[in-house]
Amino acid sequence: MSEEGTREPEGPHTPAAVPQRPAPPQRVEYVLAPGLQLLDLAGPAQVFGTAAEASGRGWAPSYIAEAATVLSHQGLPLRAETEWQPLHPSDLLVVPGWQVGGQRRPVPLGAALLDRIAAHHAQGGTVMSVCAGAFALARAGLLDGRRATTHHALQDELARLHPTARVVRDVLFVRDGRILTSAGIASGIDLALDLVAQRMGSRLASRVARAMVVYVRRNGHAPQESVMLRHRDHVDDLVHRAQDLIDDRYAESLSLTLLARELRVSERTLTRAFSRTLGTTPLRYQQSLRRERAQLLVGAGADSETAARAVGFRDARMLRTLRRRSGGITPP
């Protein structure tokens, strides 16, 4: 099999079952602070709302605050609930950022909301912040000893005020267990798309991205970068459809012949389109997806053999070989 296909050079095999994705949240609760940045809220809300419409599953929004009306930094008043409903561990809690500087406090949230953020994580829930929202997570005690990021203009302040937090600089977003933090403003969209991909698959995430016209994955050096999103900065429909198929079935032995047949084009046409648009081949694209997924599994505690088999490799040898070729660090 030549490199123009997507079957691994080790030969046919039956990969181990891929671990099931976590279910999408039944509810996404947004904590609204005075002076919040509208895009910090609207970006993730649009991603999750579009995912809900496209899938018919989960992501129902709710908005809470200490006052019924919250004035955004842009001057738009927002309505919020002040009688808070109990959260389930499967729910997602999102803390959008706010304007920092001048006379504003670093965290314009009271003790009750900070306690709610901490309690949700303590009961097994996932907490996400955008921009200055990381300061609320730190005040709630969730960043002690954890990796986190925020807007580049606020990184020094976060590190100064919360020295136990491990501030990761100049990246789009950081995942540390069930604590998700993103950088300034529009990076909340990147993190939200990544979360959709993790919970509901890359195909849905790519559909949401296309609906929002946000193909570009900024900052290719982000440690938590997504292969799927990093290679979506184009408008070639054939390559998008090929990526959808590979993203959804990356653990399978997909041959170039099979891909071309399902896409109803010739193998030559598909190979040329991939090379012209992405500068790579379907095989290498699939291998990148597998390496990334294996790295996530190793980071979650799996050994390299288990991770390799789960993503479709016969064993860890191929994974190690590909990691060396790409200049990556081989998992233990």
Rank of each mutant, 00 (worst) to 15 (best):
R218K: 01
R291I: 07
D176C: 14
Q286V: 02
S202D: 13
A205Y: 05
H120E: 06
P77Q: 14
V227Y: 02
L154Q: 14
Q99L: 12
T6Q: 10
G133M: 04
D156N: 06
L172R: 13
R210P: 00
A132I: 01
T6G: 11
T269C: 02
A310W: 01
A54P: 00
R147W: 03
G49I: 01
V127K: 06
P108G: 14
E83P: 00
P332L: 13
G220F: 00
G312W: 01
L114N: 08
T181H: 12
P223T: 01
A308C: 08
T257N: 13
A192T: 09
F274T: 00
A111W: 03
V31W: 07
P106W: 14
S2C: 04
G145S: 11
I246M: 13
E4S: 03
T69K: 04
F313R: 07
S62R: 15
G301R: 08
Y30A: 10
A302H: 14
R284L: 10
P77W: 06
R210E: 11
D237W: 01
H121I: 07
A122H: 11
A52E: 08
H73I: 01
S326T: 14
S275K: 15
V168N: 03
R284A: 09
Y250M: 01
G56V: 08
A186G: 11
Q155L: 11
V239Q: 08
R268Q: 15
L283K: 12
M200L: 07
T321R: 12
D247C: 09
S182F: 11
A260Y: 08
P77S: 07
L229T: 00
L172F: 05
R166S: 02
D247L: 05
S2R: 06
A273G: 12
D233T: 06
Y285D: 04
S266H: 00
I189A: 06
W98V: 04
I189E: 06
S226R: 12
P331S: 10
A23L: 03
A211Q: 15
I117Q: 05
R217T: 11
A132M: 14
A65M: 01
R284E: 15
L109P: 08
A316C: 10
A159N: 13
G279Q: 10
L109Y: 13
A192C: 06
T6P: 01
T82R: 12
V94N: 11
T269Y: 03
G124A: 15
L172Q: 15
L263M: 07
H151F: 11
I117N: 09
V265K: 09
R291E: 09
R178N: 10
R169K: 11
L258R: 05
Q155F: 02
A111K: 10
I329H: 04
H88D: 14
P19G: 02
Q155N: 05
S72M: 00
E81K: 12
A316G: 03
